[in-house]
């Protein structure tokens, strides 16, 4: 059953990811990206990380994609959608991508060091344990992340503001 769900969500995620790259209109790309994120969060549920799935939907679908759609509405996209890809033949880029994909697939599929089954799954107090770990062992990175978010907030406002002199 888990296998069926994994194949379903994985296939839809890959198809919608292709839609992001191939769509002509940036709005279509954004909608395909939203579908992709929802499927990835379903895969997080399969990996028994429901908290991450919820965070994924809140942050990516609720915040980041809305931001993308707002910016898309603010900007004039009509001339940009006429030409999808960079001009000229992107032979080097394609060669690089094929090389990258083949290398990673070979490394993953040839390896025999992956564990076959999941270690004992602790589903009960998972979120509590995650919170305790986050606020004790990872307190400094947590504070640094909050400072980074604050700096990004101020920076985005300063960058997007009109020059008033």
């Amino acid at each position: 059953m888990e296998l069926v769900f994994f194949l379903l969500f994985g296939t839809v995620a890959v198809v919608t990811a292709l839609g992001v790259v191939l769509a002509r209109n940036p709005v279509h790309s954004a909608v395909a990206l939203m579908a992709c994120f929802v499927n990835i969060s379903a895969i997080f549920v399969l990996l028994q990380a429901p908290l991450l799935a919820v965070i994924q939907i809140f942050v990516y679908v609720g915040a980041i994609l809305v931001l993308f759609l707002f910016v898309t509405m603010m900007l004039d996209i009509r001339d940009a959608e006429l030409q999808r890809f960079l001009p000229g033949r992107n032979l080097a880029a394609f060669a690089l991508l094929v090389l990258l994909g083949i290398e990673m697939l070979v490394l993953v599929l040839m390896s025999n060091r992956f564990p076959q089954a999941a270690a004992g799954s602790r589903t009960g107090g998972e979120i509590r344990e995650l919170g305790v770990t986050l606020f004790s062992d990872y307190l400094l990175p947590f504070e640094v992340a909050s400072v980074i978010l604050l700096v990004a907030l101020v920076g985005a406002i300063v960058l997007a503001r009109k020059e008033s002199g």
């Binding site: 994985g10 995620a13 890959v14 990811a17 292709l18 992001v20 790259v21 769509a23 940036p26 790309s29 954004a30 992709c36 990835i40 895969i43 993308f68 910016v71 898309t72 900007l75 996209i77 940009a80 959608e81 030409q83 999808r84 890809f85 960079l86 001009p87 992107n90 880029a93 394609f94 690089l96 991508l97 990258l100 994909g101 990673m104 697939l105 993953v108 599929l109 992956f114």
Partner: peptide, 23 residues
């Protein structure tokens, strides 16, 4: 991991060959 690899390659393709900055 293979799903991650496939999504990574698709995303890298988008970064390398698309012309629109938003995409």
């Amino acid at each position: 991991i293979v799903l991650g690899v496939v999504l990574f390659v698709i995303g890298a393709a988008g970064v390398l060959i698309r012309r629109n900055i938003l995409v």
